[in-house]
């Protein structure tokens, strides 16, 4: 299927990305080409295959819910964050 400008806009919104005006045509063309290529999966006979795939035999393991905090990690992350104050990340005002 062809990706058009409206669909690209929807995808940009969903992924918090903005494709610049001068790149849009190229991106639409490239995405359409790739999507058309992956549609070759339609040629495979997959009716009897399972719909979920797991890489872990026996499922995801469970563990005890024990608090485990390494203060050095917190400190390093906060110290190098774009903006932080009193152990919080600071972001632009959300509520007026």
């Amino acid at each position: 299927m062809k990706i058009d400008n409206a669909l690209l806009q929807k995808l940009e919104n969903l992924s918090s990305l903005k494709i610049s005006n001068e790149k849009r045509e190229d991106v639409i063309k490239q995405l359409s080409e790739i999507v058309e290529f992956v549609e070759n999966l339609g040629e495979m006979d997959l009716d009897n295959e399972e719909t979920t795939f797991t890489t872990i035999a026996g499922g995801t393991p469970l563990r005890e819910d024990i608090p485990n905090v390494n203060p050095n990690i917190i400190q390093t992350i906060l110290a190098n964050a774009p903006l932080s104050e009193n152990s919080f990340f600071v972001v632009p005002k959300i509520i007026e």
């Binding site: 995808l11 969903l14 990305l17 494709i19 991106v27 995405l31 790739i34 992956v38």
Partner: peptide
């Protein structure tokens, strides 16, 4: 990276 994020967003939408 942007191209692959957009493509991944498409196939999951």
């Amino acid at each position: 990276v942007k191209r692959r994020i957009l493509l991944g967003t498409f196939v999951l939408s």
